Simulated assay, not measured.
Amino acid sequence: MKMIIIFYITFTCGFLENVISNVNPLPYEAIFNFGDSISDTGNDATYYPPMDGDSPYGSTYFKHPSGRMSNGRLIIDFIAEAYGLPMLPAYLNLTKGQDIRQGVNFAFAGATALNMDYFIQKKLIPPLTNISLSVQLDWFKKLKPSLCKNKQECDNYFRSSLFLVGEIGGNDINALILSYKNIAELREIVPLIIEEIINVTT
């Protein structure tokens, strides 16, 4: 787990350094993001509105509830800003006629890489949500006809789009930890998580 966190931080720092230094030869015109709370810009808050209706998240930067699991901005916000793009709207917050050509965020707080069926089958304490990575991919597929109409148009459009898949998988591990599984059992789930991330990315 420690190695995953170190890898993620190293990758993010390298990625941001490349973007911010303007040496990246690929200017992106849109960003599509998939993941969990680390990059959720409002899907969870829309699906499960705060009970008190006045979430403190967002108070330090946005000065109002922003739908993020943070009082400020997220890494995905800085990536969008570095490419001169607006902050990504959450998929569940989209309104009719809204311009989505510069990207959409499908990340959902509490999301898992694996589907809920896995946790039920293994008799594990289930994750807090059933919005897995494959559910987010289904959301993208539903949105796709609004973005491009045919293969050539889609190829051209997505060629200049950045797709981010993850961070995700931590909530899968958490479900096993909460179910009092040992290290050997935790190790067994890692290849399954990786395989699911690869499949969705492909």
Rank of each mutant, 00 (worst) to 15 (best):
E153L: 06
I120A: 12
E185I: 09
G35V: 06
G170D: 07
M116P: 01
L74W: 02
P127W: 06
F140V: 03
G103N: 05
I20L: 14
A45R: 06
G166N: 06
Y8H: 14
K151E: 11
N71D: 14
T60C: 14
A175L: 03
S146M: 09
W139Q: 02
F62D: 15
Y118E: 07
V23R: 14
K142C: 09
Q121H: 13
I198N: 14
C148K: 03
F32E: 01
I183P: 03
K2Y: 11
A184I: 13
V200E: 01
C154K: 06
S179I: 05
P27M: 05
A90L: 08
L133T: 01
S37N: 07
R187W: 09
G169W: 05
P127F: 07
F158S: 04
Q121L: 10
R101W: 07
S160F: 03
N115M: 08
S55D: 14
A30N: 04
L192D: 07
F108V: 00
T112Y: 03
P25M: 08
V104W: 00
G14H: 10
P191L: 06
D172L: 04
M116T: 02
F158Y: 09
F119Y: 09
G53C: 05
P126V: 10
Y28V: 09
A175P: 02
C13I: 15
I173S: 06
I183E: 15
F108P: 00
I183W: 13
L164Y: 00
Y48V: 08
N130W: 00
T112R: 04
E29C: 05
L186G: 12
K63T: 13
A184T: 14
L92E: 08
D36A: 12
Y118Q: 04
T41I: 02
Y47F: 12
L164I: 15
F106T: 00
E29P: 01
D52S: 08
A107P: 00
N130E: 08
Y83F: 15
F108L: 01
Y157F: 11
L147I: 13
S146L: 11
D172V: 04
F163G: 02
N199L: 14
L178W: 10
S66Q: 11
P49S: 04
Y61T: 15
D44L: 11
K142M: 10
Q98Y: 04
S134L: 04
K151A: 10
I100V: 14
N33F: 01
L74P: 02
D44K: 10
D40S: 01
W139D: 00
K149S: 12
A184C: 12
Y91A: 01
G103P: 04
P86F: 11
F11R: 13
T12I: 11
F108R: 00
L133M: 13
I20C: 06
A82T: 05
L176R: 05
P27W: 07
L16P: 03
E185M: 10
M1R: 12
S21A: 10
I5G: 08
V104D: 00
Y8P: 02
Y180A: 10
R187E: 15
N115Q: 10
C154D: 07
